[in-house]
Structure formats: structure tokens, C-alpha cells
Design a protein around this nucleic acid. Structure first.
Lengths: 185, 185
DNA sequence: TCATGTCGTTCATGATATTAAACACCCGGA
DNA sequence: TCCGGGTGTTTAATATCATGAACGACATGA
């Protein structure tokens, strides 16, 4: 999911070759010129989204797939509460279950928000999904601009891409057990 | 996903507004002009990949996330405790978060085991991984023949293939919040 | 009422993407 | 040797994008 420095040209070239297409073949199927594909692959131009889409249609591959594509014993089972790694910042306590496990498919957290605590102004946002159940106290959760206050037994589940923020508006501590997949931590 | 007919303009607008940014704010953060964002959102131009990337950097969001994000299928996010579907059998209560969501990558459960309750003689075993945190009371968990009693704040995480069983040996109710991926329910 | 600020839109112009055609290279066959 | 057909690359002309500044509409307050 790292397209920070995605090299569109090299990426397109790799994809094209994986499908066994020449620049001219692909150009013909995509309805563009072979020269354009050459220029794109050399990063001498940054194609418009519409023309990149046309090119990918000739493969065929979606824009989402193009940008998503990545080219690049017996574990412990039980964890005492004190063994959970605290990865929280500031006053918020985030205790991660199984931090030492090499390849997890989820992050399970035991979270505690003191009264007034929140996850900060900066918006949290990452791939995958997350959900949780409020165990104690009350939390105000804002997802994609929509806010709601949840109490004990209430729950949430959303795509982590949506901007979200947790805030404890009261004075009593709030505890949550949450999970996210793929793992955030 | 679905970017067959992706409307880049409307999509950008929705994302921008979701993050509470004006065209000018976003333009400033992205290092482009507000006019360009206006034109893109009206689909009067198809931005180059490089300028779309600049714009998304101002949010911030990756190209992959932008093209992957599904806005049409915006699902419910918040669930009151009474809305959680009880899928338990016998005396054990299993409340599933987001049972109505079409495609989840996890099952998140709020579980309650009355005193003496257990998950039955037959051993549970399925693909994937699961973990959880004990919220209240005590539970005896047996995984691959190894048993341990966990109290509030204690946790577990294991591959679901390992035979496992939950039992409440005491008289007080025991509550757990758990997650499994891929979803069991 | 007028001033100030922010919103999104528009337009002329300069910058860049895209085309069409030519170019250089390599290979297998006459 | 030279030809035809396959690569990918380059160039000049054209189409499109991106900028900077101005615009009208809508708020908030003095």
C-alpha cells in the first residue's frame, strides 16, 4: 500500500510485461498511441487519470488494482494483562495483544481513555477495517464527520480509511476492546 | 473494487468534505491552486496522476486508497448494545458487531458466559486467527490441550486451527470481547 | 448599509500531456 | 546483403491541463 514514491512508469511497464503485451499491442487495445506508453514508462510525462485509465482498460486492470498492486513453531497463546505492550501516546493507554507474534492478521487492543482524552486533531486513517465494543464509561466517536456517543455494550465497525477520532467527553475513564484488520500495529 | 465508472470529481469532493477541508485549504496544503480543485471536482479536466497525487497528499491519502475507497457502499458505523445480533447457543451469549454488514474482514463479538457455562465438548476449530480480552469475571481457556484461567484485562491470541474451548469455572458471569479474522460468523 | 471574509466558479495564458510520424535497433529469412 | 516486421524511442504540432487573478454569491458584524 506504499505508493509514496510509486514509480508509475516502471509499474506500468512491469504490469504490461506481466501480461505479455508490447507497447504497440497495448496502445492499440487501449486506444492511445505507442509513443504515449513509451513516454509514460520513462516517466517523461505524468499521464492524466483519464488516459492512464484508458491504458489500463487495455490490459485490463482497474486503477484501484494498479495502485494497490504490490511488486515488491508454536506461538504464545496467553497474555497476562501486565504483559500486554502499551503502545499508547500521551494519556491514552493502548495495550496490544500478542505484539511479539511475528505475523498477525489483526491488531487487538485494550484501550483506556481518561476523562477528556482524545486521539488528537490529526485524523487517523489507514487501510482495512476496524471495530470494537465499549466496555466501561462513554466515548464520543466521530467517523467521516458523523459523531456519536457510545456507552457500555455499544459497538462500532467501519472502514479505517474513513477519517475518525475518539474522544472521552466525560470525567470517568473509558475502556474499549478493539480489533483492526490488517493489523495497524 | 469498482472504479469502472469512477467519477473522480465527485469522489474527490466527497473525500475532501469528509475531511472537512475547503477547496482553498486543500489547495494550500497540496501546493496547487483552488481553481484546479474546482475544475477537477466538476470533471472539467482529468488531472494528471502527478497533480492528483499532490492533491491527495494534502489530505493526506494515497492514490491506492483514493481509488479503492468505496463511497457508495457507506455502511452503518454505530451499533447500540441492543442492536447487536445474539448468535449464541444455550446459555452462552454471543453478540456480533455489524452482523448486517455485507462484507466484513472480521467477526467482533461481545461474549457472556454465565457461571459454569462452556462452549461444549466438541472442539472448535476453523481457519484464521482469533484473540480477545477478558472484560469481567474469569474464564478458563484451553488451547491445544493447554489450559489457563484468565481474569479481567488478561488476553489471548491463537490460530483458530488449534482446538480450543472456553469454560467459566466460577459462579460470576464472565464477559469477553473477541475478534476473529477471517470472520467466523 | 457597508466592510470584511470565505465559499466555489470562471477565464486567459503559460505549461504540459498526447498525437502522428519518423527514427534507430534487432532478428530471421530470401 | 538486404528486406520486412518486430521492438522501443524521439520530435514537432496540437490538445489538454494548471495557474493566477478576478468574479458573484453568501455569510458575519460594525
Amino acid at each position: 500500500m506504499n505508493d509514496m514514491n510509486i514509480d508509475v512508469g516502471a509499474h506500468l511497464k512491469a504490469v504490461r510485461q506481466m501480461y505479455g503485451l508490447s507497447q504497440r499491442e497495448l496502445a492499440k487495445r487501449a486506444g492511445v498511441t505507442n509513443g504515449l506508453i513509451s513516454l509514460i514508462e520513462q516517466n517523461r510525462v505524468s499521464p492524466s487519470v483519464s488516459s492512464l485509465k484508458k491504458v489500463l482498460d487495455g490490459i485490463p486492470m482497474t486503477l484501484a488494482d494498479f495502485f494497490t498492486l504490490d511488486l515488491a513453531g508454536r506461538s504464545p497463546v496467553f497474555f497476562a494483562r501486565d504483559e500486554l505492550a502499551d503502545i499508547g501516546t500521551g494519556s491514552v493507554e493502548l495495550r496490544l495483544v500478542g505484539s511479539q507474534l511475528p505475523k498477525r492478521s489483526m491488531s487487538i487492543l485494550h484501550e483506556r481513555y481518561p476523562g477528556g482524552a482524545d486521539t488528537g486533531d490529526e485524523v487517523l486513517s489507514h487501510a482495512g477495517e476496524e471495530g470494537g465494543v465499549v466496555v466501561k464509561g462513554r466515548i464520543e466517536l466521530t467517523v467521516a464527520g458523523e459523531a456519536r456517543t457510545l456507552g457500555p455494550g455499544d459497538a462500532y465497525y467501519f472502514k479505517s480509511l474513513l477519517p475518525h477520532r475518539f474522544r472521552n467527553p466525560g470525567t470517568e475513564d473509558c475502556e474499549i476492546v478493539s480489533a483492526s484488520s490488517p493489523p495497524t500495529f
